[in-house]
Simulated assay, not measured.
Amino acid sequence: MKANERLLEMFIHLTKNHELTKKELTDMYGVSSSSIQRDIQALKLVLGQFIDCEDKEIILQPSKGVYRLNRDLLAKIGLGNLSLLEDHKLLAILKVIISSRAFTEKELGDLLEVLTPDDFVYKNLLKNEVTFYKGVPSQSIFDKLELILRAISEQRMISFSYTKYFKTVQFTKMVEMIFFSDMYFYIATANHTSEDDIHVEKLNKFRINNMEHIKLLDKGKTAPYHQRFQPIDLTHRTGSFAFFGKPIEVMIDFYYDPIYVLDRFPNHRIVSQRTENGETVTRLLLETNDGYGLKMWLLMQGKQVKVIRPQYLKKAIQEELHQVLKLYDD
């Protein structure tokens, strides 16, 4: 094997392994330890040309005769990927990906094959979840994502059919953003403060897995920057439920540990706390979005929540609960 071939192969081995010893390398290539040392110095010299940090080494030596890539610097020169993370960090990311159920079984398998190196020590901890994994989409999400991302980058409109509540409607829309929330990838076709209704014709966000017959059209008109969809603002205002609507402040009394509300709605303020029947009741002011999605979330809390204001929302919840009780009338 030529020296330059050996250098490339050594670099590949270093990216796939956390550490390599000088003895492993001498046995692998049948060369002297001084040759391996020269090879390591050559790799440092070449890789170092892409790094601004003169005081940091791209190849570390945690102990004598042991070599390891500086993964932080590797990422800075554009050669980083998830498989280069420390195993416990990679496990955390893979857990999130699997738990999202956002991909088909095949798509998840393809992702894991790329993201998990052969020496990933926690592979067995994922085995059960992968074996019994059931993805939400029935068709490839990646094919649709690729087409929609092209529409966004080229500022082109798209047409598609969309089914909701057993009704299929044809749409022509300008896509502002792709975002992920609660098992689904969505597109936003308007600012998140716009109308979002149970009526399919009035939708401004769409689950990508429910979109069919997507076609690229001509260029469309983009909204001014201050009117564009802001996914992080939506997350702060609605948690994982991503309901659109006009900005609103809602005051509630929460009859359980408030952490379940505080974590979901970062834009909150604790107004007061009191004790009722030996239990702590927390009064909270939430900055959120109005609309049917807000009512859905409030109703999901059952007896743990009471709406204080606005009055019209309180009345809407009361009317909804009366309708629920009617379902149980014999």
Rank of each mutant, 00 (worst) to 15 (best):
F180S: 04
L299T: 09
D330H: 14
I259W: 03
V281M: 07
W297K: 05
L73H: 00
H236W: 10
L60T: 07
L94R: 05
A3C: 04
V250W: 13
W297Q: 09
Q318C: 07
V305W: 10
K295S: 13
L8V: 13
S138K: 15
R269K: 15
K56S: 08
Y29P: 00
T193C: 07
H226P: 01
Q273T: 15
E105Q: 10
H13R: 11
G302L: 02
L216S: 07
F160E: 08
I187Y: 00
S99Y: 07
F254I: 09
Q301N: 11
F171G: 03
S194A: 15
K314P: 02
V305Q: 01
V324A: 14
I98C: 01
K315I: 14
I317T: 03
D218E: 14
G65Q: 08
D257H: 09
L91P: 00
Q139E: 15
L60G: 09
K64N: 07
D143H: 14
K56I: 08
G30M: 12
H192G: 02
K295T: 09
Q61P: 06
D39Y: 05
Y29H: 09
A188M: 05
T288S: 02
R71Q: 08
L313W: 03
I51V: 15
F120T: 01
S32K: 13
K2C: 06
R228Q: 13
K164E: 14
H236G: 06
Q323D: 08
R150P: 00
L90Y: 03
M157F: 00
R156K: 13
E19I: 09
D233K: 05
Q311E: 15
H268P: 04
L74P: 01
L45P: 00
M251V: 15
Y29E: 04
K123C: 00
G48F: 07
M157K: 13
M251W: 11
I259K: 14
F265V: 03
N128G: 04
S138A: 08
Q61K: 09
T26C: 13
R269H: 13
T104I: 00
P224E: 11
S181M: 06
T172H: 08
E54F: 12
N124A: 12
T280A: 12
D257G: 01
K23F: 12
S194F: 10
R309H: 10
L299D: 08
F244Y: 15
D330P: 12
S100Y: 06
F229R: 01
E287Y: 10
I252K: 00
L108C: 02
L85W: 03
L14R: 03
I98M: 05
Q318A: 14
V281A: 04
L25Q: 06
K134R: 14
W297D: 05
L111Y: 10
F241K: 12
H199M: 11
K215S: 07
F206G: 05
Y67V: 07
R269I: 13
N289Q: 09
E276N: 08
W297I: 12
D263I: 00
D290I: 04
H213D: 15
A188C: 04
Y165D: 08
L47N: 05
Q227K: 12
T288F: 06
L262E: 11
T104D: 01
E57R: 07
